[in-house]
Each structure stands twice: as structure tokens, then as C-alpha cells.
Amino acid sequence: MIFLQQVVSGAAIGCIYAMVALGFILIYKATETINFAQGDLMMVGAYFGFTAVDLWGLPYWQGVIVAVAGTAVLGVVIERVLMRPMIGLPAFAIVMVTLGLGYLLRSLVTMVPGWGTDSHKLTTPYTGQVLRLGDLVVSQEHVVIIAVTVVLIAGLYLFFRGTRTGIAMQAASQNQMAAGYMGIPIRRLSTLIWAMSAAVAAIAGILLAPLTFVHAQVGLIGIKAFPAAVLGGFGSMPGAIVGGLILGICESLAGFYLPEGFKDVTAYILLLAALVFWPQGLFGQSVRKKV
């Protein structure tokens, strides 16, 4: 029973990793670069949620919508101001810019009046409640995280399979130039991708906030989403979700059954093992350079 308990709470954290990893992959597929500030977008999303709900006193669900929309707008601004001038530069340069952006976001939030350097608590209607399934006791926070993740994934799936924009995005991620020649507005899609990826990050941040408090360093959890994305083969959205879940569950089990210290590095040990023994990830495909 304890084992199952650990698995469920691990899966909940795994969902957070999966959402951040999803953000990485959305941007990676669209621009072939990694947004190292993804975790920091998540942090900003949590701050927006805290502002809307606790500072402005909006009802929780309205506050969440405002926060997610606000973060999406921030994503658009980032794409327009920072990413557009980078078109044509190597991916490494873009990665460095997102690293710089991460630093900038982490310091800027501490300068906002009302936010500052203190930790804050995001109030939710479900905090402190538990769900009992037989002997299994699951805290309501975990239930909400898992449920929202499922809904989010279903939504993304429908979007990419069923809508014109979603299919256009898929086409653009396969071959940007060809998609451009077919009349797909690549630049507008890139903006949209950043908005979506920021929104997903904000949702993750708001869901995580009741468990960890809201502070400037909360985005560092995003680093653990790398292993999740890599386990899933970097480039596959189902892969990212499975990778995130595996990671969350392993971490939670390692924290319980292994000596102290292992929990924090489980993700990285798993990742290195995966890279050495399974370089293409669970859902990856190999690409060969043409000469």
C-alpha cells in the first residue's frame, strides 16, 4: 500500500515534469532549440496565479485563467522581442539567450512590488482535502494535478490532430521550408507555439504552487524536466509524458526506499543511463546528416 501511495504521489510530480517537458518539446519541434527558461516561465505563471487569486482576490478559476493568459502573452512577447532577431543563428546561440532570459526573469520577479524575495502561498479551494480510494489516501492537490494533466493532454491531442492550425504546426515541425512554401505562416505559428508553451508552463506552475510555495527559484524544478524529455526521446509529446511519469515515480520510490541523497539525483542517473544504453530515447527516431 505504501508502494502504491508512493507511486501515486510520484505520478503527480511526474505530471508536472511532463508538462514542463511538453513545453520544451513544443518549442523544440518548432525551432529546434531548447528553451532553458521554460522552468522560469512556470515560475512566472505561479506568480501570476498568486497575484490574481491572492492579491487581486479573484475567484480561483477566474484567477487561473487570467494567470495562464498572462503567461501566454509573456510567451508571445519573448518570441517577438528575443526570438525573432535570432532566426538563422545556431541553436546554441538561442539556448544561451534563453539562459540569459531565465536569469532575467528570476531577478525581475523579485523586483515586482508585492512579490519581492519572500515565498508566497497560493490559496486554492482544494488545499488540505484528501481523496480516499479504499486504503489509498491521495491528497486533493495530487488528484487535481493528474486530472488537469489528462485533460490538457487530451486537448493538445485533439488540437494537433483535429485543427488546421495543429496540423500546420506538425507540418512546419517536419520541414519548415517546405511548410513555408505551402503557404503555412511559419512566423505566426512560432509565436503561437511560444504562447502555448508558456501557457502549459503556467498551468504546471499554478498546479505545483500549493505543494512548493511561490518563489523565484521554483523554476529550477524545470531542469528535471530535461531528463523527462530525453527519456521520451526529445521530440515526441507522448514520450515526454511517459518520460515525466517514469521520472516522477522513480524519484518518489527512490526517496522512500533508497538512502538519503538518491532522490535528488534519480532523474540524472536515469538520464545518463538512458543516454548511454538507449540513445534514441523511448520514442525517438534517428536522423542522419546528408553529405
Binding site: M96, V97, G100, L105, R106, S107
Partner: peptide, 22 residues
């Protein structure tokens, strides 16, 4: 009096160098 000012400057300078002076 902002404590984050060094981090912010660090981030901004990094971004500027890559965009303006690779």
C-alpha cells in the same frame, strides 16, 4: 536596493552579446 539587480544585468548582458556581438 533591489537584490536581483546583478542577476538581471548578467542576463541582459548575455542576451545582448549574443544578439549584437556574437
Amino acid at each position: 536596493n533591489q537584490t536581483g539587480i546583478e542577476t538581471a544585468a548578467f542576463g541582459i548582458i548575455l542576451i545582448l552579446f549574443i544578439i549584437v556581438e556574437p
